[in-house]
Structure formats: structure tokens, C-alpha cells
Design a protein around this nucleic acid. Sequence first.
DNA 1: TGAGGTGGTTGCAAAGTGAAACCGCAATCA
DNA 2: TGATTGCGGTTTCACTTTGCAACCACCTCA
Lengths: 151, 151
Amino acid sequence: MPKRTSHEDASCTVARPLDAIGDGWSLLIIRDAFDGLRRFGEFQRNLGLAKNILSARLQNLVTHGILRTVPAGDGSPYQEYVLTEKGRGLFPVLVALRQWSEEHFFGPEESRTRLVDAQDGQPLPPLRILSHDGRELGPEDTTPITHNGDS
Amino acid sequence: MPKRTSHEDASCTVARPLDAIGDGWSLLIIRDAFDGLRRFGEFQRNLGLAKNILSARLQNLVTHGILRTVPAGDGSPYQEYVLTEKGRGLFPVLVALRQWSEEHFFGPEESRTRLVDAQDGQPLPPLRILSHDGRELGPEDTTPITHNGDS
DNA sequence: TGAGGTGGTTGCAAAGTGAAACCGCAATCA
DNA sequence: TGATTGCGGTTTCACTTTGCAACCACCTCA
């Protein structure tokens, strides 16, 4: 996590969430959480990261309200980490990232893990950014404005 | 950028792009590039990061094919950094991240920078994940599979 | 009792980050 | 002509973070 002491961190909607998920591990933990992993040991085995790092990342995700700890699960005396509603809101971000990655980081013959429709196994079509009246918008069709909160 | 020497980095469509954009600065640089910034000094002034860090991040984004350098622009003897097609493909990721951030990191009264439709100034409606036949999909409606490249 | 699994914390070495200084180049100014 | 400034970096060095390994506390089961 960089320092970002600049003047630009206050109102930018990109900068602020990066404190929560901007490091290299958090999004992988969240992806695993979407895949149903809940236990410390599951995350650690699946990701192969050091336990102290995992511990710090889980704490950070909990304090940011993305994961929360629930007391048990099965009879074990330990806790589990599950996505909050805020954490589940990251689903479109992960889908967008996966689609971009599939398109640009993998060759057509290369094996990869992809997300498919659970009902019929069909791959997800590419995300589209639509305006309120249904036009498809590209990067040049949008503009950033400073919004005051009132409106 | 974490090490990720684990067995899971090879085929995961989330892990691989994080080498390119997984640090705390790269997405901010890319957002600025979408906003039209092109020059080293523009990025540095706008983000307030150290010049060596900016230099390293720009190099990394160039080697990953997200930005490319173009020789001039105006008459100046310097180079500019512009998004490649691959870089422009990150637009849905940024939109998804902004929408999640607006919803969960900002109070209703809090001032923030948001993205609006350039044509009519209307805010972008929330992204929806749709199946190939138009059903809206949530996290529990999808499942990850290992895809072999052939099909 | 003690052997093993789970969920961490603690050292410590190595790598990464960041502020400031420095540097080469070109255009500008005196 | 010689000095100055701005741009685009690179170098230096103190500081922070990461990651491996060891250790530890707790519980279960034999």
C-alpha cells in the first residue's frame, strides 16, 4: 500500500478502495472467498502465502468491512471468514478483471480457470457499460465530474 | 507485488494481471491516462508520487503492454505515455471499481469524483452481469471451471 | 500423556518504497 | 556567450514491508 499523501486521495473513487484491496493478495483472497473458501488454512493452502501475511490481509479486509468473522461453522472452535454485503459487491470488479485477463494475458490454447454460468455452463458474455438509456459507452463517452453529495 | 510462487498462479485469471496492475499506483496511473494525461510530469503532479516510483510503474505498464510510448505530441523532444488497446480494455474494471467505491466508501453527503455519460451528464447505472441469454447473474450463479483452451 | 492439526505471532534477512539530490538535455533569458 | 530554467528521468540512502521459518497456544483424539 503506497502512501498517497497527495491532494488527490480525498475524493477520488479509485484511490480510496485501493487501501483495502490494492495489494497483490487481497483480491486473490476475495476471489477464493467467492469460491466458497472460509477457513484460514484453506486460504493459506490454496494461495501458498506466508501465514503472517495472510493474517495481516485478513485483518485488513475485516477492518475494511469486506470480510467478517463468524464464530464457528462445523463444531470446530475456530472462526471463519465470510464476505460481507460490501465484499460481495466486488463481484463485478472480479468479473471485469477476469474477462480482461482472459482476453489479454492468455493465449487461445492456454489452459485457464474461467467463470461460467452455473445454470447451463455457458461462458459469461463480455461486460458492457451501458448508459441510463441503453447506449453502450466506451472510455471516450464518459467524463469525470466532481459531485458534491447534494443533488 | 507479492511473490506468488504457489501452484495457483499459472492458470488463475485473477492472479496474472495483478503483476501488471496489482500495486497501489498502477490503477491510478491508468485512470489518469483514461482522463487524458500523457506526460511524465502530468502524472507526477497529479498523483504526487516520487519520480522514481512513477518511472518504475510506467516502465512496468509499458512492458506489460498497457501503455506505450509515442515519440512526441507537441514539439517537445520528450515522449508521451498512451493507453494501448489492451490498456483501454481495463475500462470496465475501472468502472466497476468506481461504482463499488462510490457505494461503499463514500457517505451520501460526501464530495467525490464520479464518471458520467458525456452526452447527457447522467450518471452511469450500476453494472450488471448478464448471462448469454440475458439473466442477471450474482456470485452464486456462477462457478469457476478449468478450461483447456480447446473447445 | 502425547501426537497431531489449526490458527496464529515473533524474529530476522531480503526486497520494495519514497524523499531528496543529482544529471543530461533543450529551450530561454541576460 | 554564458547562466537559468524546466523536463524527464536515475542514483542514493533511510525506512518500511514482505516472506520464510521457527515458535506458541489451544483443542482433539488415541
